[in-house]
Each structure stands twice: as structure tokens, then as C-alpha cells.
Write a protein that binds this DNA or RNA. Sequence first.
DNA 1: AGAATTTGTCTATTGATATAGGCAACTATA
DNA 2: TATAGTTGCCTATATCAATAGACAAATTCT
Lengths: 248, 248
Amino acid sequence: MTGLASSIERRNGVSLWRQIADRILQAIANGDFAQNAALPPEIVLAERYGVNRHTVRSAIAALVQEGVLKAEQGRGTFVLSRKRLSYPIGARTRFSTGLQGQTSERHIALLSSSTEPASRRIAEALGIAKGAAVIRLETRGEADGHAVSRATTWFDAKRFAGIEAAMAETGSITASLKRFGIIDYLRHSTVLSARHADADDLAALDLQPGAIVLVTIAVNVTLDGEPIQFAESRFPAERVELRLSAGD
Amino acid sequence: MTGLASSIERRNGVSLWRQIADRILQAIANGDFAQNAALPPEIVLAERYGVNRHTVRSAIAALVQEGVLKAEQGRGTFVLSRKRLSYPIGARTRFSTGLQGQTSERHIALLSSSTEPASRRIAEALGIAKGAAVIRLETRGEADGHAVSRATTWFDAKRFAGIEAAMAETGSITASLKRFGIIDYLRHSTVLSARHADADDLAALDLQPGAIVLVTIAVNVTLDGEPIQFAESRFPAERVELRLSAGD
DNA sequence: AGAATTTGTCTATTGATATAGGCAACTATA
DNA sequence: TATAGTTGCCTATATCAATAGACAAATTCT
């Protein structure tokens, strides 16, 4: 559908080598190359994109630096990384169970936590008063040692006092909520957008500048419909796709 | 959450002015500026981002060219464009009804149509034999005269012969399917990703190079679960967000 | 009227980006 | 062992991107 051959734009603020690197990443993520497959030779890529061979080399150098490609003098350039993870989103969105079968290990690392007054937006989502205390967790989702998500989550501080300790200990939202008597919960709403990664995303998700992140803003509720959690999650678009499950 | 103040990265293949333009667009889409509100003065933005005033001017010039901002000598620079459209996605995703209340007019324009053999991916999705004839429609969704989506859609050619004429006439998928006896249908699956817009997206969606598009790949089915439509849609991330409806 | 603020324009300089060509180094294969 | 194919590295040149400073032009406020 969107192969290697799409064209390249000049004078738009994005350098040619970055655009070409993006296309190659995309092709890999689409599954156009098998693992360890050889990329076409530099001279062929240069002709395909209508640029100089050196420009292609800049793109490849960036991806080698990133650990996506490996270049071997005399032999060729080879693909190291694999297809995108497919992250399911639905009424029962859970980090760990969602990636089952695609990765052997996954958990959520707590980067930091703090208590702050609720902004209007968060207060509305959680059904509490504006300015009431909320606990804010900064987390990173990891699967097989790779960062796959970066999230900021808010809980009502009164109801979920100490949840940051539970998160640090269990590495799981679901397990942490159990300690507060919540054995099941549902995804109430999700809003989805995309943007360029900012400095924080770059560091936390181990991305190269210029990368794109998918952003979800979600509210989780109890079975009774009571809001318990408000979260903004960022996913690296080059490594993750979101799959919207139908019924579930 | 992601305000104007996030930092800027150097030497990454994306020019500073483009990064700043992206952040301003994002802030507008987030609703940080009211319609016709004044942007902070160039000198203030320059200090905030840690760049020269001329660099900020390049970013503003790009957005003025794009029609997002209007600069007036001696007065300031003003926001023209409005908040993002929120496009709902769920079991009953429909183009027209989904945007009701947000726009006064919307329709789907048929750009071109063709008949081609089904690729493996499309054949699997539609439950037909690989190589069987399928009708391919290239369409653009428009709301109040602005392009909000660009889609490629496939139908089984045997069952839906002539659907391109129905689309051209009605400007609606739902209305066209009615002519083939389908009075209701459901969204079976949706896969979501994001990437930089390619040349075709740029032209069809009236975007500037470097823009980001949200990509959905979806299968629609009858109430009996029979697949009828396979579609890849692209949405300009700066103008559209996707809202995942809970129950529906 | 005058001062302050803000956008518009000009010149100049530096570093990054992209093109061009040539040749060395390494690998695989005929 | 040649030979073709591929990556690695060098020099050189032109254009774009970013910084710097100065001043003009338009608007707003005192």
C-alpha cells in the first residue's frame, strides 16, 4: 500500500535523509522486509528516491545508529528490527494481556509520581472538584526490553492514596487497582491523535528526533460507570500500531 | 499537557522552524488559543524556544502560507484556524453522521475508481479468492469545504458491480450500499497507525510537506458478519482527532 | 505628539544539507 | 584469481537553515 517508492519532498523543513529514513522504517514496520533481509544497494535507493547516493547514506547511517539496520562493507545493509507490535484498544484495554503472544516479557515501569491539584480537564474526567488533589504517575511500558509506551496517569488522591507504591511494586495498573477493591474496570472513552515526539518522548521511548508518536487520551471507569483513572499515553508510531477490537 | 513550551531538538533532520511550526499547530489544535487570539510576539516565542527571532519568523511564515495564522504589521499575529474535528470510530462508524454538530456540510467526493485483482491482504479481508476482481475507490471526505480524510476502499466487484456510480451520485457509502440491499453494517476491525504524509496525501488533503497523517485500516461487515468493504483512510493529524466510542 | 510595541526587510556570517565525482576496501562468485 | 558488486571515505561546491544586528513601517497607548 505504502511501499518504498513514495516520493520525497524538498524544501519543507524536513531534510531528505530524514524523510528517506522514515520511509525505510515504515517499510520495515509494514513487513516489506524479512528479518535479516538485505536492503537494496545504496545506488538503487538513490535512484529510486531521486537523490544522491550520499543522501541515502545519511539516512542509513541514522538507522544504523538507531540499531534498526546493520551495514557490512562489501556485502550490503541488513534489517535488524522486526514488525510493529499491535496494541489492542477496547473496552477491556490492559497493557500486559494485550501484548500476550507478541512478546515474552512486559511490564510497566514507574518513572516518577507526584501529587498535584486537578486541572479543569482532569477534574471533569474524574468527576471531582477542580483543584482537588490528584496523584500523577509517569510510567513507561516495556516489552522485551523495548520501550513501547510512555504514559501520564491521574487518580483521585483521596480514593487511591498510595497507589504509586503499589505500581512500583507490581508493575501493573490492574494489580494496583485490585488493592483498592477494584477487581474489574472498563475503558470508557479514548481520543486519538498523532504528533511529533517531544524531548521527553524521545528520551523515554528511545526515539530519534523527528519520530512520530500516537497519543491516546483515555478514561477508565468501574463497572458502575464511576471514573477512576485519566491517562494520556504516547506510543512510538514506528514500533506500535493500535488495533481497535470490535465487541470487546 | 503538551503546551507551547516543550523543547526543540537540533541536528536531527527536522529544521527548527518546522518543529516550531508543528508545536504552534499542536497548541492551536489543543485549544490553547481562542479563535482570532493573538500569538505571543515573535521575540517572546524566540526566547521561549531558545532560537533566533528569524527562525520563529520562518515558522510563522509557513503557517501564514498554510492559512492557519495571519500576521499584521504593528499589531501582532493571529490565529485563524479552529480546534480539531473529532471523528468518532466505533462499531457504527459513518462519515456523515459522525461529524454532525461539528460541521454544517459534509460529503465524500469520488476522486477515481478502477477494477483490479485482489491482493492477498484484500482477498483475506473480504473473504474472496486472491486475484478475484475488486472495485477500488479513491475518495476524499470534505467538511465545510475542508478536506478531512483521504481513503482507498475495496469492494468485491461481483457483488457490488457499479458501486462507483452510486458513490459518485450520492456522495455516501451508506447510501450506496443501500442500493445493494445492505441497510445496516458494522465496523468489524480497525488498525491504527501514523506516518508522515506522502505526496498523494499532501495534494489530496491540502497539507504542507512534513505533516502527519493518522492511518486507519478497517473492515466493514453485514449484520451477519459477512465482510463487504476493506478501507485504508488517512486523516490529517493537525485537523482531526479520532474518538473511540465505548459501547457503540 | 511622542513613546513603546510589534511585524517587515535588509545585510552578513556560520554550519548543516545535498550534489558530484573518484577511489579504496571488502565480499561473493564466476 | 580475476571481476563485479557493494560499502566506506575523501575532496569540492552550491544551497538551505540559523544566528546576529540594525533599522523601517505600522499600530497602540500615554
